[in-house]
Amino acid sequence: MKRVDVARILGEETTTEDLFVSSIGGILDDWWNHRPGGEDNTLSVSILGSVSSTALGLAIALPHRRVVAIETDGSMLMNLGILCTLGAERPPNLTVVVLDNGLYECIGSAPTLTSRHADLRLIAEGAGCLHCMDVSSEDALRASLRSVLSDGELGFVVAKIEPGMEVWPAEKRRYTDGVEDKYRFIRHVERLEGIVVHASSPHV
């Protein structure tokens, strides 16, 4: 199973009513092309280690809205403390999906510690997270997503993926400087929720 397969299946098993917080790296273009409805429903944070914490805040702020954190092993390892917070809070509307290939693939493929003895599922279980599971096939991933996305409890899915990145043509690449991405996501949430998150300053 490859990274792009996880993006495709996740896009098929979620809806335009869901919100996503994504890691950076290889997942950006894959998810851009498979996000449900092609909506601006995803906030891609630019700092590794901040994906699940950002998604946690979003899930707490919008308890009626399903939120998915699209994590990577490298990002997760940079903030293992968030697992203890997730295990304590257990937001029922949050699902964490970790893409684990054992590599920092976008910066030269240096190995992460999941390539040795670190087991993110066991660490999450020890931190008190619910419904923690490893999957390594498309069928297992689809089945796990259908379970954790609909059970009304915190879910933590580690998708074991093969190294390798999908090569997308230029017209299907996701180009953003992060700032534009943030405001597009804010405006999407405002439309979805009928609220004002960030008011524009009036022209003087």
Rank of each mutant, 00 (worst) to 15 (best):
I107G: 12
V148G: 05
V158Y: 06
E105F: 02
G57Y: 09
L149T: 02
V135C: 09
V135G: 07
Y104F: 15
A110T: 06
A88H: 07
E125Y: 04
G74H: 04
L130Q: 12
G102C: 02
K160Q: 13
H131D: 15
G57K: 13
A110I: 08
D139S: 15
C106F: 11
L56P: 09
L77G: 12
A159R: 00
M78Y: 09
D73V: 05
L62N: 07
G152N: 07
I123Y: 10
V98C: 12
V67C: 15
L120N: 08
C106E: 14
E125V: 03
N101G: 03
S109T: 10
G128W: 02
E89Y: 14
I161E: 00
T112K: 00
I70V: 13
R142Y: 12
H117T: 12
I107H: 06
V96G: 05
L149V: 08
T72R: 04
H117G: 03
R146N: 15
L113M: 14
S75K: 04
C132W: 01
L86F: 06
F156R: 01
E153S: 14
N93W: 09
S136L: 05
L77E: 14
G81R: 04
A143L: 11
L103C: 03
I123M: 11
G152M: 05
V157E: 04
R90A: 11
L154T: 05
A118T: 15
L58N: 08
L122I: 04
R142C: 11
L103T: 00
A61W: 00
E71A: 12
L103S: 07
R146D: 14
A140V: 04
M76N: 14
L77V: 12
R146E: 14
L120W: 10
G74R: 01
D100N: 10
H131F: 03
C106A: 15
L103G: 03
A124R: 02
I107F: 13
L113P: 00
P92K: 10
G102A: 01
L130W: 08
D151N: 14
R121I: 13
Y104E: 05
Y104S: 06
G81P: 00
R121K: 15
L86V: 08
L94A: 07
E71K: 03
L149W: 04
L58I: 15
L154K: 01
L62V: 06
V157N: 10
L113A: 13
D73C: 10
V148C: 07
A59W: 12
R116Q: 13
D100Q: 00
L80H: 02
G87N: 12
G57C: 12
L130T: 07
E89P: 01
R116C: 06
V135F: 08
D73T: 01
V96N: 00
S147L: 13
I60Q: 05
E153V: 06
N93R: 02
D139Q: 15
L83W: 08
S75D: 14
P92Y: 04
T112E: 09
D119E: 08
I161R: 05
M133L: 01
G155W: 07
A118L: 12
V67N: 10
S115T: 03
M133W: 00
A143G: 09
G128F: 06
S75Q: 01
L83E: 09
